[in-house]
């Protein structure tokens, strides 16, 4: 018992410092991975053709409340296409229109307004991706979570179905959890 207590004590003392180091180094990798994942999701999701025709033939990804990811994403998609189209990354501020988006990433900083944002896009052909715990309950379609220092994601099929989006079974195969309802 003694040794366990001492270990816990030590852990408690060291935790804030370790966490800070870990977070600064971890966030950087996390941003890269998440940006890459966002780009890759395009391969595994089918949009209705009418939706793809909008916004001048460009595939538009909106990023809300996560500028680091937006920046990384811009870098990732710079020379790439999704569904054969060039990709635009739009940084969205509070109150900006959410129209003409194909994908929307909502950062952790906007987690409190998540329900509001999700309801705004609900029924629209916009793939919504979040990084907040229990975000699926708010109506998000894909939600990043960290598992053993790795970025994983859960998928909710119901809101995607409402947005006429088809998520590939191959994507579902690598999802941590798939919520049908």
């Amino acid at each position: 018992m003694v040794s366990v207590t001492r270990r816990l004590l030590l852990l408690a003392l060291l935790l804030p410092a370790l966490s800070a180091i870990a977070q600064s180094a971890g966030r950087e990798a996390e941003v890269k991975i998440k940006a890459a994942f966002l780009y890759k999701f395009g391969d595994f999701v089918e949009w209705p053709p009418s939706a793809l025709e909008r916004s001048g033939g460009r595939f538009t990804i909106g990023v809300l409340g996560a500028d680091d990811i937006a920046a990384e994403l811009e870098r990732v998609v710079a020379e790439r296409t999704i569904k054969g189209r060039p990709v635009s990354v739009r940084r969205i501020r509070r109150g900006d229109s959410l129209a003409n988006l194909h994908m929307l990433f909502v950062g952790r900083s906007e987690s409190l307004r998540l329900g509001e944002i999700m309801s705004a896009t609900d029924g629209q052909p916009v793939l919504t991706v979040t990084e907040t715990e229990n975000a699926l309950a708010s109506g998000s379609m894909i939600n990043f979570i960290a598992v053993d220092d790795k970025v994983r994601f859960d998928v909710a099929l119901a809101p995607a179905g409402r947005g006429q989006l088809k998520i590939s079974a191959r994507l579902l195969a690598v999802a941590r959890k798939v919520v049908a309802a």
Binding site: D43, F44, K150, V151, R152, R170, A173, V174
Partner: peptide, 14 residues
């Protein structure tokens, strides 16, 4: 092909 998503999303388990 089967493993492509797993590679894409770095999912060694899958």
């Amino acid at each position: 092909r089967t493993t492509a998503p797993a590679l894409t999303f770095d999912d060694a388990r899958v």
